[in-house]
Design a protein around this nucleic acid. Structure first.
Lengths: 206, 206
DNA sequence: CCGGCAACCTACCCGGACGTAGGATTGCAG
DNA sequence: CTGCAATCCTACGTCCGGGTAGGTTGCCGG
């Protein structure tokens, strides 16, 4: 209702691709707000101003619809992280840039990150695979840089990378719940400092 | 099946408190393995060797049963963290001790941590409140020590504390999925080093 | 102007799982 | 031995929600 700028006459017929986009928008809003189980296909259809069979003419089932949205959000996360990590060649700049990108992703008004980080369908293998894959991609990209300038094994670098991803994820979600008690850029910088101090000059100090 | 050492003649009558414990054990196994939604009350009863109405004579409903188990696991986490944090007065010892405690908690064979960190009922307000509360308690305890020897505000200390909690949580769960490619104590020490370097001597370096 | 295709709707099916009514059985107290 | 209370079971009600059958309306090319 607040997001998804889809106006239109609303109760007229519509070409197939446009309707599909509208359905995806409504579905995203509902899944994000209610979670997979509490979300009802009826509500998604109704919110689009359309009847349920129409929804099933665009998507074979509830799960496939959900997976389409999940893929979208997960891929966006990976893309954003990738861009941030390659935005500079100076590691000291790279860390804050990446945290800023992550916080931007989480602070997005559409809150699509909840599909990735707060899915209530993690037992479904297809969902679990996608979430784990996205997080692993992020950790893997991060681990490359860690491995380069800290003398650690591949496995250790991956564990460190995943730790940083977890740090960003949980802290950003916590930051959201505080209603921005701390300004966004201050929070980003705080995390970047924590991470940078944790990783840089690794082999030297204990 | 593997966990929960409950033998007994199994198909005889049983005093009320003993049966209750048995039911809780079976319920924990099922909820952990399947998640809340996929778990069936029938299966919990059947696995106990008992019929469904018996289950409902011990717990008013599925949600209450789940909450009882969730409370148990969440409180155990907070207790373990509290004990680890107060096990020494030297911060340099405190950090690895706490990570060890956390990894122990996650590596427990009963895998009860999944109720707290991978609940598929996070939209239920009662569940969300409990999970957030447990995590906040942990972050709050950690933040006390951070605030003491780093000159940061209360809000900043809490954000840092939550970041460390997230680091531990996500890294430990990732470590589990790797089938212990890295020995447990090595992983703990790696995380402790990352955290310690991140927070110690905070005001001095940038 | 008109046939046909495609978008759409009303109304329904049905399976699965929570929760319960009512009765059978066991064992302890007196 | 006997009654009563507590434990337990079979069988069912019921509701919710995903998914579908079949008919209707409107747009567009010929």
């Amino acid at each position: 209702m607040t997001a998804s700028p889809q106006a239109r006459p609303a109760s007229t017929r519509m070409p197939r691709p446009a309707r599909r986009l509208q359905l995806l928008g409504a579905a995203r809003d509902v899944f994000v707000a209610q979670g997979y189980h509490a979300a009802a296909m009826d509500e998604i259809a109704e919110r689009t101003g359309v009847s349920k069979p129409v929804l099933y003419q665009h998507f074979p089932g509830k799960l496939e619809l959900y997976l389409a949205l999940l893929d979208e959000s997960a891929n966006e996360l990976v893309k954003i992280m990738s861009e941030a990590l390659s935005s500079t060649s100076d590691n000291r700049q790279r860390v804050p840039a990446t945290f800023k990108a992550f916080y931007d992703y989480v602070a997005d008004a559409r809150e699509a990150f909840r599909l990735v980080f707060e899915s209530d369908l993690s037992n479904e293998p297809a969902v679990r695979a996608r979430v784990e894959h996205a997080m692993y991609e992020c950790a893997d990209m991060v681990s490359q840089f860690i491995r380069e300038d800290a003398g650690v094994s591949n496995e250790e670098a991956h564990l460190l990378g995943m730790a940083l991803v977890g740090m960003a994820q949980v802290s950003a979600r916590y930051w959201l719940t505080t209603n921005q008690a701390i300004p966004k850029d201050a929070a980003e910088q705080l995390m970047a400092r924590l991470a940078w101090r944790g990783i840089s000059d690794w082999p030297l100090t204990s």
